[in-house]
């Protein structure tokens, strides 16, 4: 994690200067110069640019200690795992049946060619996309309404408050009875897991919108819908994305548990099945894949957040026209 910021900021400065250069600079230059005394405090000066090679070397040097420590940390973990399985550590914690790193790697090499394995992965991802997607749509929509309108708050919030403390996983039996297929009930569990964090953060986001922005919107002629879509929603977006990040985590927790309990297919099912079939190396593979998929999903949300909220990350002219 450590090295990223240094390298990032280096490349950001590079692109930002390019942005200024190819903005319609010629026509704009007089306007800038016409009001230098006012313009000066607002314009953030660009740092002088070191050469590309210098920046790469500098970036690497700055990143090196962090990189070393990361390698050391992971290396130690794997070494511990390796020796614990090799010498069959059995002191309260038992490593007798735990697969060694080598076994895991060997099985992974086989699974790479297994269509069934990819299918399990895809099924889980699809359930996440569906459940989380619906939760995002409904959570944000209800959140905006509840946050903005007292009637919506009065009618909807009590139901949500009553249902909220029930963990999504507690819904499994009920969901199986409620929904026509196993698949829909698992998507429902995933949905439930992510819905509440998204809903609550959206409500919180709406409640913390600066009232002067709403007044400004009204003065500029925005109607109710325009206000909701063009003022409240973007103002609440940072909080909404907090909700999405939390929601995505809970969605995976709920999904994996649901797949293990009631599932057919899916990476959680794969992991549990491996246990039943005494294919212990596959358990570790399932766990690792779950971790990687979860990480990829939160990375995707962060990426989307940066894409949708450029004003939070821009510190130089992006030259968007």
């Amino acid at each position: 994690m450590q090295p990223a910021p240094t390298l990032d900021s280096g490349s950001l400065h590079g692109s930002s200067q390019a942005g200024v250069a190819d903005a319609p600079g010629l026509t704009l230059a007089p306007a800038t110069q016409a009001t230098p005394q006012i313009a000066a405090p607002g314009a953030k000066p660009l740092e002088s640019m070191p050469s590309l090679a210098q920046r790469i070397v500098g970036g690497l040097r700055a990143a090196l200690p962090g990189l070393l420590m990361t390698t050391l940390s992971l290396g130690l973990f794997i070494a511990l795992w390796y020796f614990a399985t090799k010498y069959r550590w059995d002191f309260y914690i038992r490593f007798n049946n735990i697969p060694s790193p080598g076994e895991v790697l060997g099985n992974a090499a086989n699974l790479i060619h297994s269509e069934k394995f990819y299918n399990n992965m895809w099924v889980s991802v699809r359930r996440i996309l569906l459940g989380f997607g619906i939760a995002t749509g409904l959570g944000v929509a209800f959140g905006l309404l509840i946050g903005q309108y007292r009637v919506a708050r009065g009618l909807l919030l009590p139901v949500f408050e009553v249902l909220r403390p029930i963990p999504a996983i507690a819904w499994v039996p009920m969901a199986i009875m409620l929904w026509p297929t196993n698949e829909t009930s698992i998507v429902f569990i995933t949905f439930l897991g992510s819905f509440f964090p998204i809903l609550l953060n959206t409500i919180h986001g709406v409640n913390s919108v600066d009232p002067v922005l709403v007044r400004a919107g009204r003065c500029l002629g925005a109607n109710e819908l325009g206000l909701l879509r063009q003022v409240i929603l973007p103002a609440a977006l940072p909080h909404i994305f907090t909700g999405l990040t939390v929601g995505m985590g809970v969605a995976w927790v709920s999904l994996i548990a649901a797949e293990m309990i009631s599932g057919q297919y899916g990476i959680g099912y794969f992991t549990w099945e491996a246990y039943s079939l005494i294919q212990y190396a596959d358990i570790a593979i399932g766990m690792i894949v779950i971790g990687v998929l979860g990480l990829a999903c939160s990375g995707g949300i962060r990426f989307l957040g940066n894409l949708l909220m450029p004003w939070l990350t821009t510190h130089a002219n992006r030259g968007r026209t």
Partner: peptide
Amino acid sequence: LAFENHYPEQLSGGM
């Protein structure tokens, strides 16, 4: 005009 693509955060109070 030179600041049309800036975000408010990037401006001084007077601007």
